[in-house]
Design a protein around this nucleic acid. Structure first.
Lengths: 336, 336
DNA sequence: CTGAAAGCGCTTACAG
DNA sequence: CTGAAAGCGCTTACAG
């Protein structure tokens, strides 16, 4: 179970008949080294299967090559693609992301941030979260910082996000174009900015079409499946008919779809259903879900790339990401 | 963007009028320290908002407090719960998991392993993967090692997994009990042990019920949704009727369900459908999916706990995890 | 090109 | 109880 003595730069120096400094130099090719010695060192490294101790290197160089990533719910389908994108973005670089989860609770976020801090990250990526803007500004003082899925005033140029208002507007508008007039909305958690922006987009689209905003058609969810299911039950109990339903994320749309199914309400024949996110599985629900696509993988990847650029003090172009409406089969014309 | 000079143990020593050694001692409470000095140190720490540099500590103590986790597809829904469990299992400990992804490719797995190695992890958790058993044994020499979702000969006591054979057997048996005689199977990727075990369970259940094993009813998938969809198309083209379908994982079951839907084949009235994994969203498909549940969160959590125990040289009881059949609404009696 | 020395920020025997 | 010193495994001026 326990390995043999970890082998160090000194071991290979001895074996190669040079000084540790020289070994370090061939390792990092920072300074020319005589060919013979270089050879000796190289073969010694191979023979002893030596691998530099990154943490010692980190201490000596003052660089940890670690990027702290503050997540909110590692494990949720939405974060899955984001993480994959981040992981992909750092591949081949010498940097390695480490994750700490805030669990959508402020106290845990602070805690996670401190955990990350103690690992001396060279930059931070923060995904959403409930931390006050002031804290974000403070963090930006301390580290190169990229923020995903949230817009922080005066830090806009470090934020990677799609326009939630715009996405929701587009979704609602599409429903209206399809002839729907009574469009219900399941919101996310009130404290999230996404929730507010998406609801605002929904309402604006209604307004622009001269349709009334009916509070009875709006119900709050939690971004999770079960809440979508419950929301539909609530909506149905209110006996306020609707022919279309816009859920603030796909997971709630799944729950809503199930509630509808249980009541024998057909999608899209009786009710059109539209989500937000375009999770990978949304293309495989029955019927496949019409939804507002967030390019999550790309968001993660560009955040990673931007982080690398920030560290190297290069410009960090962030892509112009627009939420696309992906029209599948859960939406149709309103019944006449 | 760049922080001010990082403050160290010396800064607080100076401020508190003690030696760095003493600061270290109050930090770690390894040795009694006079109350007055302890106070001075504590307040200095607060005032300067000092946080120890974990990487320096690591070097000095020879402990990184890092656990390397080798994943295969961070971001897939199956791994989501596992990661969440792992994360949860390490909460409150001083250890922190870091992830590197093998992407289900041997070369990348080796690479990921080396990346982890360079971070000097104190233990390793390896999720599945294609690495030869011999490599796993070697890794176990080098680190305390826990393996999830795979059984490695002579390392059984370090493996956390559910019995795939048994789970598949149970699923198939249930279908048979419901009167199904022509049961199709969508397998996973051939090179995965899970695939083999699940198929074996399926076949054994058939055999035990004196039902024929019909190669025309078995089609290979990739564990992804699209392959489930394709598999059903293939099955349908073969014109070999079946009344039930067992997919080697939920994602393929989703794809299969969609293919069926497109053909107007009802679930469960015309075909019973059963998956494997019990992903969180499987409770919300239409109809909710009958499936073999893997307690992935618990698996992740117990792997983490076991790892901590291994590190501390304590016994590391691994739970007895059995795959439960979760009967929902995608299965029913065979048509007569 | 190359070695000896100092230093990265801590910890931990060692000697009071 | 406590300070000075050595050491963790590297890197990097500094002086040849």
């Amino acid at each position: 179970m326990t390995g043999s003595k970890r082998i160090t730069i000194h071991d290979i120096a001895r074996k190669a008949g040079v000084s540790p400094s020289t070994v370090s130099r061939v390792l990092n090719s920072t300074t020319p080294v005589a060919e013979a010695k270089r050879q000796a060192v190289t073969t010694a490294i191979q023979q002893l299967d030596y691998r530099p101790n990154l943490i010692a290197q980190g201490l000596a160089r003052g660089t940890s090559t670690i990027i702290g990533v503050l997540t909110q719910d590692i494990g949720s389908p939405f974060y899955g693609e984001l993480l994959r994108g981040i992981e992909y973005g750092f591949r081949g670089s010498r940097y390695h992301p480490i994750f700490a989860d805030g669990n959508w609770q402020q106290a845990e976020e602070y805690n996670a941030l401190n955990i990350l801090r103690s690992r001396q990250p060279e930059a931070l990526i923060i995904l959403g979260g409930l931390m006050p803007d002031a804290e974000m500004l403070a963090a930006a003082q301390e580290f190169p910082l990229i923020i995903i899925g949230r817009s922080v005033p005066s830090l806009e140029e470090y934020c990677v996000l799609v326009d939630n208002f715009q996405g929701a507007y587009r979704a609602t508008q599409y429903l209206i174009e399809m002839g729907h007039q009574r469009i219900a909305h399941i919101t996310g958690i009130r404290s999230h900015q996404d929730t507010l922006d998406r609801q605002a987009g929904y309402e604006q689209a209604l307004r622009d079409a001269n349709l009334p905003i009916n509070p009875d058609l709006i119900v709050e969810g939690t971004f999770q499946e079960q809440s979508g299911l419950l929301a539909v039950e609530t909506l149905l109990m209110r006996a306020n008919p609707f022919t279309a339903l816009f859920a603030a994320n796909d997971q709630m749309a799944y729950g809503a779809r199930l509630a509808l199914y249980r009541r024998g309400i057909r999608v899209p024949e009786d009710v059109s259903l539209i989500g937000f996110d375009d999770l990978p599985s949304s293309a495989y629900t029955t019927p496949p879900l019409t939804t507002v696509r967030q390019p999550t993988f790309e968001m993660g990847m560009s955040a990673a790339k931007a982080t690398l650029n920030l560290i190297d003090q290069r410009p960090w172009p962030l892509p112009q990401l627009t939420p696309d409406l992906v029209i599948r089969e859960s939406t149709g014309f309103a019944r006449r």
